[in-house]
Simulated scan of single mutants.
Amino acid sequence: MGYRLAACAEMIYLDQPFEERVRRIHERGFEIEIWDWTTKDLRALADTGAVFSSMTGYVRGDLTTDDGIDALLESAARSLEQADALDVARLGLHGTGLGEGGLPVRPVETTSGADWLRAADTLRRVAELGERAGRVFTLENLNTAVDHPGVPFARAADTIALVSAVDSPALRLNLDLYHAQIGEGNLVDLVRRALPWIGEIQVADVPGRCEPGTGEIRYEAVAQTLRDIGYEGVVGMEAWASADSDAALDAFRSAFA
């Protein structure tokens, strides 16, 4: 397979300290994804020798309001500085900041044409930061039906529209297939359509957001599609372990072998 596999240390080995989670995932041969860098000892994580695939690329702000844009750009710049400690390749963004339980800090029912234009302009400015630093920001699609109600620009179709409009190598998609299955479905076609803009892919099964094989998505077919279209990026398991974390990683690897 041309792609590489990563696992999110925020969601498995939950009975272990965070550094030990990273070590175990690394020992199993996976790259590592983390979320909020402000809660981590980055030097200790770097000392594990793991390869860090992605982390959150901002800690506050949004894409469309004056104060939110300023906050997002400032925290994106700080995130780039911290990314050096782990040599993280990709830094994640969402349609707006997420608070407790993944709920948006600024929920939005509808987005106007002006909102779309401001979001694209903000993302252009974020991409410029990434270009200067030699790193890539990724805009993640989310679902609003189950996990993230009120998030603007949440659908995969929305993130594709924004990323393609900016058209910068420093802004790509984090195509999350768990969220896309809930919000849109038709994953094989989605992967094919999104390929020019994909920076990474994240997976979990539906329902439950656990490892592949626990729900309705036939990830073996998705994996074959990725091989067929020559995808060479990262596929990250951002999923809870349904039972044992080692078994969850085994199931993930088996689905994408």
Rank of each mutant, 00 (worst) to 15 (best):
S53I: 00
A127G: 03
A114I: 15
L45T: 10
T39K: 15
E109L: 09
V105G: 01
L142C: 03
A83F: 09
G99P: 02
D67Q: 14
E109T: 13
A161Y: 03
F137E: 03
G130C: 04
D47K: 15
A44S: 14
L129G: 04
G102V: 07
T48D: 05
V126H: 07
S75T: 15
S79D: 01
D70Q: 11
V146C: 06
S79K: 02
R43W: 10
A46D: 07
E81I: 02
E100G: 12
G95W: 02
D66Q: 13
G97I: 05
V59T: 15
R132T: 14
P104I: 09
L103C: 04
M55S: 05
L45E: 06
V126M: 07
D84A: 15
W37H: 11
R155E: 10
L72G: 06
P149T: 06
T138F: 03
A46S: 13
D147G: 02
G150P: 10
G134C: 05
A119P: 08
D47A: 15
L73P: 08
T96Y: 09
G102I: 12
A120D: 01
R124W: 00
E81L: 09
D47H: 13
A76G: 07
D67P: 00
G102Q: 11
A114K: 15
A161H: 08
D84L: 14
Y58H: 14
K40M: 11
L123W: 06
F137G: 00
T38E: 12
T138H: 02
R135M: 11
D66F: 08
T96M: 12
R78V: 05
T48E: 05
A161C: 03
R155V: 01
R43K: 15
T48L: 03
T110K: 08
T138A: 05
A119H: 09
A76D: 03
L98E: 04
A85H: 13
T64D: 05
D67I: 08
E131I: 06
W116Y: 12
D84V: 15
G57C: 02
